[in-house]
Write a protein that binds this DNA or RNA. Structure first.
Lengths: 343, 343
DNA sequence: GACTGGCACTCGAATGAGCTGAGTGCCAAG
DNA sequence: CTTGGCACTCAGCTCATTCGAGTGCCAGTC
């Protein structure tokens, strides 16, 4: 019989979360019975509520008010009491067609942010495909003037990095062609993290007179490979959705806006990239920043089925609609992965 | 004698604007006399204030409160009563050294936004150097695989656009080399807007068998030249500064956040690019959006002394510190122009 | 004629008392 | 275990009152 009681208590918790997410107002026993058909009287619900409060899943803002879920309550709800909502076919179609219109990687990322913000009606965050986890697709050395070379690095994810190198003396076009081909043979298909080793050997294969120049180019390439700043590139969108946070501006909106400016913070919030099947949900105080204790993060990796290239996700109030949001984040991550795989 | 009276009335207006900007509270005759040494009694100031109100430069939020400047008041202040503040040598140095660290154009723009937001403590907006107004510096055709070509366009401002072309049949490396050199001869130094004409003639110079391929490449290049979306690229930063707007969140912060999401709106707000010497200031209702009636824009062009490549500026509450803000915007625009000219 | 001190007046904001009602906890009965 | 009943709590609303910053105007002074 203990089993049955627990069952119902969880129903009550589910009802409380759903109600509170919908109304943003503390929910009392009577309203709860009215709105969700729980099949028991308010008094019974009150008993359950008292127990749930005892166990730390819900709390009262003040004595004479209804209950609201605690972070632990949301956690239980997300883990046990809800199923991720799948998107309607129409929505799925809209996503693919919107993403398919992108002309390059930058455009994919921009569109993804916009899309995610629009569907979830939250603040969306998309990390650019990580350099570390990408492979070299092509390296190009372009002579712009005899004393100015442009290095172009194209990764498997379609990311393009360019650097200028100003050689100490005029360079011969033949040398450049040679260099270009040797670089590509040495690097093509390699992970950027492994590329360092392969690059090291390249200068030695050249005539001593040319080695200085080649070394300079190799150094610049290495810098590009391990670019910290580039690694942390992030796109953010949907900040206007913060206006729906409710009233407590100082406590809810301000810290989020501040965090959005600091890409390092956002990266920590997003956390390690997982594969697009796995969703990471951080609720309230579970995230590493005290100031964002009223904020939750829903994130996941994207890039390919097996291995994530980077992370994307949303940031919103703890009282968000988790099932829908999680569904949207997962769906978008999958479709972006698909688009990237195709290109 | 009328002259003297007018003179003092303007002093009073200046004092009101400065006080209100500092405190964000309606300013009364007594406080005004206390804080600024006007050399007359409160009663006299009251008379002047009544006149200023009559003329529409100041207004009372409610009967028993002090005065605040109207948009017209700020306008007069900006046009006649203030001088643009110049930055301290230390600040100037900080700007140049911060901007000098940039590795490519994207980085320049990102740094500029950040810088501008930090100095002005407002929301900063920087438009990417316009394609229309740029010149072709270099066009590169890179063979990634025999059935996949990468076109790279580099503009005089350092902007790099890339497009993928998938030719209908395998292409010969010799043909590519040929094409590369002819494209560069045809285009180098041209304005992107004029490039269309020069490009049109290129396919004809090739053997009939190759024309289809060349035409495809030319078409893609043309698309890149006239890319509407790329033309409207914008970077935004410092949204967290909106938290200092004061309390009326719904009226002041929300519309701005919404506008920041819409780059088309931001472009209209920034207005036509002027040269970096000329500052455009739009106060409150002077800007084209009703919802931004409590918001002012300070903008200017950047790119070169004579001709602007694009626009940058800030958005903030009408009660901002115009002299400092204008000084900062102008200085940043100049230094960015300089950095771009050097690279 | 311009400036000033004085004074009555206005009205938003702050303070506090009183009421209301949603919601609770507990208990005794089913 | 569930339920109806009941006393209790307390945030939030309303209303009245007070307070004071600030005004406009007028009569007097230089």
């Amino acid at each position: 019989m203990v089993r049955v009681l627990d069952e119902r208590k969880l129903d009550v918790l589910r009802a409380i979360v759903e109600d509170y997410v919908a109304t943003h107002e503390p929910v009392g026993s009577k309203t709860l019975v009215d709105r969700h058909n729980l099949g028991v009287s308010p008094a019974t619900v009150r008993n359950d509520m008292a127990a749930l409060e005892e166990e730390g899943y819900i709390t009262q803002p003040h004595t004479s008010a209804g209950r609201i879920p605690t972070d632990a309550g949301y956690r239980l709800f997300v883990d046990k009491l809800s199923t991720v909502k799948t998107l309607s076919p129409a929505e799925k179609k809209a996503i693919t067609s919107f993403l398919a219109g992108a002309v390059d990687l930058d455009d994919v990322v921009r569109r993804t942010v916009r899309l995610l913000a629009q569907i979830t009606r939250q603040v969306a965050i998309v990390q650019y495909p990580s350099l570390n986890r990408s492979h070299v697709r092509h390296v190009e050395v372009v002579t712009m003037t005899p004393r100015r070379l442009l290095l172009v690095l194209i990764t498997s994810a379609g990311r393009v990095e360019q650097r200028i190198v100003e050689p100490p003396h005029d360079v011969d076009e033949q040398l450049i062609a040679d260099l270009r081909s040797r670089l590509n043979t040495a690097l093509a298909g390699q992970r950027l993290t492994e590329a360092a080793t392969s690059l090291a050997a390249v200068p030695e294969t050249f005539a001593p007179a040319d080695r200085q120049l080649v070394a300079a180019i190799v150094t610049t390439l290495l810098e590009a490979f391990t670019d910290e700043v580039g690694e942390q590139r992030i796109a953010v969108g949907g900040a206007a959705n913060l206006t729906r946070y409710g009233d407590d501006f100082e406590r809810n909106v301000k810290p989020v806006l501040e965090a959005l400016e600091e890409h390092v913070i956002l990266l920590k919030l997003l956390g390690e990239a997982t594969n697009p099947q796995t969703l990471t949900v951080r609720i309230g105080h579970e995230n590493p920043y005290e100031e964002l204790a009223t904020t939750s993060v829903v994130a996941t990796g994207y890039g390919s089925k097996s291995e994530a290239l980077a992370t994307l996700g949303i940031v919103g109030p703890t009282h968000m609609d988790y099932p829908s949001t999680m569904g949207a984040v997962r769906a978008v991550a999958r479709y972006v992965s698909q688009i990237l795989a195709d290109s």
